[in-house]
């Protein structure tokens, strides 16, 4: 097997095992199935392009979050297509699933409504928090200080509860 093929095989195995991270990033940033698929595709392509620069200094998942969030934040096509340039609030449409009950559906709707109040950077911080990342790791992925992560989280908390109360 050539070196390139071996590298590809290794990459595909690692990504297949950790793909849930990418799907969750897509769910945080996309409001419909088509956009989700596009963003997933874009993140995969970007991960593959930048895989040679992954030297194992950071955890694979940390690297994955970095690349996926960078692509999601810099992604622009869908917004352009919809002529909804630079308006952050999307109306998230969760796929209907018969196995979910009404209560769960309501919880998801509420969650997406809350997320839609946040800008792309705030969504990244919230996603990492919801994924159980500590302040140190969030700071490492975002490139900010731990103290500023705390400040961001406080602001996000206030923003979410203020919006919900105003409704």
């Amino acid at each position: 097997m050539s070196d390139k093929k071996a590298k590809e095989q290794e990459f595909v195995k690692k990504i297949t095992a950790s793909q849930a991270i990418i799907h969750k990033v897509c769910r945080m940033y996309c409001d419909d199935e088509e956009h989700r698929k596009d963003l997933f595709q874009e993140i995969l392509v970007q991960l593959w392009k930048s895989y040679p620069s992954f030297r194992g200094e950071a955890q694979f998942s940390t690297w994955l979050y970095r690349v996926a969030l960078n692509v999601a934040i810099q992604d622009f096509r869908k917004e352009k297509k919809r002529r909804l340039l630079f308006f952050e609030s999307y109306d998230f449409r969760e796929v209907v699933d018969e196995r979910r009950n009404e209560l769960e559906d309501e919880r998801l709707k509420k969650m997406y409504r809350a997320i839609s109040q946040l800008d792309k950077v705030e969504r990244a911080v919230v996603l990492l928090h919801l994924e159980g990342k500590g302040h140190a790791e969030i700071a490492e992925i975002m490139g900010i200080t731990q103290n500023y992560v705390r400040v961001k989280m406080t602001r996000i908390r206030k923003k979410i509860s203020k919006k919900i109360k105003s409704k």
């Binding site: 195995k13 793909q19 849930a20 979910r100 919880r107 509420k110 969650m111 409504r113 979410i160 509860s161």
Partner: peptide
Amino acid sequence: MELAELQSAWNLVNVDVQRKDILDEQ
């Protein structure tokens, strides 16, 4: 909605992802 509520809803997303989105190697 507080962050704790957001977390419990996010757990549903986790289940959804495992159930619907996972692709094979090919």
